[in-house]
Amino acid sequence: MGWAREERFAGAAVQLAACLGEYLDWRRHFDDWITVAEAAREAAHRSGDRLDEAIAWNSLGLALRQAGRAEEAIDAHTRARDFFQAAGDSHREAMAWGNLGLALRRAGRAREAISALRRVRDLFQAAGDSHREANAWGNLGSALRAVGRAEEAIDAHTRARDLYQAAGDRHREARAWNNFGLALRQAGRIEEAIEAYGKSLELRREFEDWYGEGRTLSNLAFAHEAARRPAEARTAYLQSADAYTRANAPTEAAQARAAAEALA
């Protein structure tokens, strides 16, 4: 994106970075995503367009979080939030709060994440944006699960799942079913968790979401282990390894194969 260094192309660079981000995230090319987002941020800063700069900071934060650089992501999303707030863009400010909450959770700062995500949920609920409210409920559920509040997490993931179903967003519904399963497992409701993972897998496969499929299969395997069904667990781990391989996630694939071999 060398052309993005020209001020006249700054807006296009920001838009392109946002579009490419979704693809690069899906295919897990995080270093490329960071490079693209950095170029867009620099271009927006040089042009003096603070709204574009806020959008670019937000995109960069997402890429940094996915690359495991949580503290840098927190800084990026904080900057995005402050820019959006200064621009009077309350909708994007709420989105930046949500991404900040995710970065805080990734950094192990779960209680701060819960506070941020509750704020996001309330903002989108008040705005009547049920789709983004669903996302906020799901993220809040994951943060609650991180501090062992399983029953509250079950309620949050149920709300997320139902809102995604109502919106017809089957891809995000798949993620909600997976997270619902995690909360059920944490609460000791293993058979219900296994059923939830099955629902998630059906939907993941519709979209060739290989990384998501690998994750859900690993969760399913762990649940089978908890239910003392080692043969079923081993099969699920091997399937998980295959899915992770297709998703270009060799570390996760190796971990799943090792877990399967331990049950042989």
Rank of each mutant, 00 (worst) to 15 (best):
F9S: 14
G11S: 14
A12M: 13
V14Q: 13
A18I: 07
G21F: 09
L24G: 06
W26Y: 13
F30W: 12
F30H: 15
D31C: 01
D32S: 12
D32T: 08
W33H: 15
V36E: 15
E38L: 13
R46M: 14
G48K: 13
L60I: 10
L64R: 12
R65Q: 12
A67E: 10
A67R: 14
E71P: 03
A73F: 07
I74G: 10
R81D: 11
D82V: 01
F83I: 01
F84K: 11
Q85M: 05
A87K: 13
A87Q: 15
D89V: 09
G98E: 05
L104S: 06
R106G: 08
A107F: 12
A110L: 04
A113W: 11
A116M: 12
A116K: 04
R121D: 07
L123V: 01
L123W: 05
F124A: 04
Q125W: 07
A126S: 11
R132P: 06
R132V: 03
A134F: 09
A134C: 10
N135T: 13
G138W: 00
L140C: 03
A143I: 00
L144A: 07
R145Y: 01
E152R: 02
A153W: 03
I154D: 01
H171S: 11
R175N: 14
W177I: 05
N179K: 02
I190P: 00
L203A: 11
F207I: 03
E208G: 06
D209L: 12
W210C: 08
Y211N: 04
R215E: 04
N219V: 02
F222W: 08
H224M: 08
E225F: 00
A227D: 12
A227E: 10
R228Y: 02
A233E: 09
T235R: 15
L238R: 15
Q239A: 12
A247R: 01
A254Y: 02
A254W: 01
A258L: 08
A259P: 00
A260T: 13
A262C: 08
A262Q: 14
L263M: 11
